[in-house]
Design a protein around this nucleic acid. Sequence first.
DNA 1: GTTCTAGAAC
DNA 2: GTTCTAGAAC
Length: 761
Amino acid sequence: MDPDAGSSTAVSWPSASTAGAAAKEEEGGGKQVLVVLVGPPGSGKSTFAEAVQGGSAAGRPWVRVCQDTIGNGKAGTKIQCLKAAADALKEGKSVLLDRCNLECEQRADFVKLGNHVHVDVHAVVLDLPAKVCISRSVSRMNHEGNLQGGRAAMVVNRMLKKKETPFLTEGFSRIMFCKDDNDIKKVVDMYNVLGPSDSLDSGVFGQNSKGPVQVGIMKFLKKPGSSVEKFSGPKVTPSESIPQMQNHFSKQESLEAGGTCPVEAEEEFSNSKKIEEQSRERVLSDISSHTLAFPSISTADFHFDLDRASDIIVDAVAEVLQKYDNIRLVLVDLSQKSRILSLVKDKAAKKNINSNRFFTFVGDITQLHSKGGLQCNVIANAANWRLKPGGGGVNAAIYNAAGEDLQRATKECADTLRPGSSVTVPLPSTSPLHQREGVTHIIHVLGPNMNPMRPDCLKNDYTKGSKILHEAYTSLFENFVAIVQSCMGKQNTEPALEKPATGVTSPNDSKTKRECTHDSERTKKHKLVQPNVSSNQATEGDIKRSAVTTTKMWGSWAQALHELAMHPENYKNSDSVLEISDDFVVLNDLYPKAKRHVLVVSRRDGLDSLADVKKEHLPLLRRMHSAGVKWTQKFLEEDSSLVFRLGYHSVPSMRQLHLHIISQDFNSASLKNKKHWNSFTTTFFLDSVDVIEEIEQRGSATISSDDRVLAMELRCHRCRSAHPNIPKLKSHIANCKSSFPSHLLQKDRLLSSSTMHMDCT
DNA sequence: GTTCTAGAAC
DNA sequence: GTTCTAGAAC
């Protein structure tokens, strides 16, 4: 790649003729730069630094900090370089750090320094062939660091063995690789025209794609109790001013290898340190891909106050990083001038967030690896509530980059998304985004909504909006953690719940759906689920099923059906009771939610709900189903325009297993609220045919004990359009003539005069 | 499951 | 002001 490919920033600023203080004054525009040169002796670092310093045509004041010369005749130290760099930056100057910096550890303190004083930290890698460096260093005379002749060849070889390619995650905002003098010249030219207020785009430029894999960058991925723990670097605190940093460094001074090319360097590593390094690399390579890249959610659509949004991001990030160790988060924005990015960066630094575990990044979220050199196995999508492509921005970009695979995979996981929630979609390996960028999962997230045509519009309610935005990020991070945990093959303290997602459920696709995860709504009470559900006992699969047995507490009001089932003779004169058999009672629902709404109530004591049903109950279920079909037929004879659905509520409110037979007009005054609607039109409603089939195959029914589907937005059961409230929904469904969703047209899930081969008169 | 009602939304 | 939702009580 051309080294200046990323220098798209215009450099047409007025040239500041004065240096130093003048540059500092202009800080509002661009930033100072700390250029960390990376290269062995003979690679041309000093020549590069002198060329930039001497050729600056744009008024940017440069200071060269060179370890070879900083000791005034004696061997210079890293500490001296750090101090000199800190001083120069404090004076508003940009710094060229002229030392080898071949190892991550050698660079780390300088990067930290640059990030602390909020300057851009660049790496310029002088990646020339070893023989070139050797030949230059061997033959040169009067080298500043007195490294020349035969000794130089040995040192260059030794150092190159230890070379660790710089990576953005070390804290660099930009890395440029120079393979030859031509590349070097281009980079020098780029800096020469970089005015005091200019800045260069973030990213990696000129890297050879088959470069070595960088493992050292993963040192942030410590796990408590593991050997990696020992390698967590000194904790960075916001109050850690430069002098304090220097104190810290001075303690380590004896351990630090000299900057330029000390022959002694190799001896500085004790055996124990080597062992630690090896074990670190081994562990870290296992979890090296656990990185989530996410865009800023809702800030464009919602016109969210960016200051508040950045607080929310930083808070949510801090919370999740505190809870989990082995993850890395990256906030991505396309624009170099992104305000949300700079706000978040500043606040994260102030909040003492480890910049290795969370950082901001300028780039295209769909090309982080190929263009940015940043490997992220999971990326978040600022999705729309329909989970559909389009709309521009990140959503469109991700759908475009991932191809149709993403649409298909998303559809298998969920139909919609509520504000403040997220859903994980495993990205098929056939997707270009998977193949090219190494992205294995997309997590769709939906922030607060302000479009009055959509459900849950917040208008200008920032309190609520903030809450939802925080929920959205938390949900995103929890889902990401769940992916990481499942990749690591273990469930930690707080595994994110794995649930069947919203939308279509059928035996055919239930497997894939289970692989998707929806967010857990921690604040919501699960009133219908009693503690004995024992979610924490779930081990493999983690699908809560059939766990609600005999000990569920039923309120007195919930006992009516049980009472009826046990003593149907007491009700035989009631108008509501249509049929009594040994197995069941058929009755009109007391509060019908449609023109026709009938219950087939099992008479078996102990079968409180579907969760209690086992294979031995199949004959009963089949008989209940047949009774339902028989009565449906009768109703269709009375009104052939009706369409019926037969099914069970996942978690019923009334005790005693009962099958609903309900016409799909939903034209009833008793249908009053969201829970009523969603209990019949979401996955909460399990079709009788599917329940029977699953019990035949698995021995029990898969039940989502998650009642969040009941709180979902109101959508037409035919055309899936959304409506803000019950009255509007009702007026819509009264007129909606759309055909039913295709899955309902299969397997006799819908019964009508045509499917039952009756005459339509 | 429904009813009642406070308070949010309009 | 009225409409609508959501939570508590039953």
